[in-house]
């Protein structure tokens, strides 16, 4: 049951609840860094890393510090604080140990601080703890959910980088060139992800 539910959470985070294409969070890096495949992958890896790390820190802080003290209304500000600190830490670590990745990420690494996908992952998972009825949503589930969300972000970024590289050579009407056609193709990719709805529940029946 536990394994089943973990797999279900993982797949759901990638496919049915994709944070970029189904929840429309983290659109800024999705549009900004998806031009080249290697920067898209680098950004996604950084986002995944920060997502898991942020969930790993915020989940226990929420459960064991904020809830017992009736401070759950502080979650937004505390989470922002923690995510900002974590991103800074990641930046320092990257600068020291992987300078090439640090340089290729450039301005996007500080931008993760204000990436709503990360804040969304850490906050929406708390709602699931309350709404999931079939099994108890544990710390492990939250971490797997964050990992899945990160990989979902990677999938969306890589797919969209492919779409954009085809757009480069397409004959686009002048009024649609640039951002308009990018947004339209993003919406079409998002529409295609709608096909996954209900997919995970059918594949791994928990009830």
């Amino acid at each position: 049951m536990l394994i089943k539910s973990l797999v279900s959470v993982f797949l759901a985070a990638i496919l049915t609840e994709n944070y970029v294409l189904c929840k429309f969070l983290g659109i800024c890096p999705f549009l900004g860094v998806s031009k080249k495949l290697n920067t898209a992958v680098g950004m996604s890896v950084a986002v995944t890393f920060v997502m898991v790390l942020a969930t790993a820190v915020t989940f226990p802080i929420y459960q064991y510090l904020l809830v017992p003290n009736d401070l759950s209304y502080l979650q937004t500000i505390v989470f922002i604080l923690i995510i900002a600190g974590l991103v800074q830490l990641v930046e320092i670590v990257l600068k020291k140990y992987i300078p090439s990745l640090y340089q290729s990420l450039g301005v996007y690494l500080p931008l993760i601080t204000t990436n709503c996908a990360i804040l969304g992952v850490t906050m929406l998972v708390l709602q699931k703890v309350e709404t999931t009825a079939l099994y108890t949503y544990t710390y492990g589930h939250a971490l797997i959910n964050a990992l899945g969300a990160g990989i979902g972000f990677l999938v969306a970024m890589v797919m969209f980088a492919g779409v954009r590289s085809r757009l480069e050579s397409a004959d686009i009407p002048k009024s649609l060139q640039g951002l308009p056609i990018t947004l339209i193709s993003a919406s079409l990719v998002a529409l295609s992800f709608l096909g996954f709805s209900g997919f995970v529940d059918k594949l791994i029946p928990l009830a």
Binding site: I61, L65, N69, L71, L74, L81, I82, A84
Partner: peptide, 10 residues
């Protein structure tokens, strides 16, 4: 709580 977390992170 908020100040403490901020201080710790700092």
């Amino acid at each position: 709580v908020v100040a403490g977390i901020g201080l710790l992170i700092g």
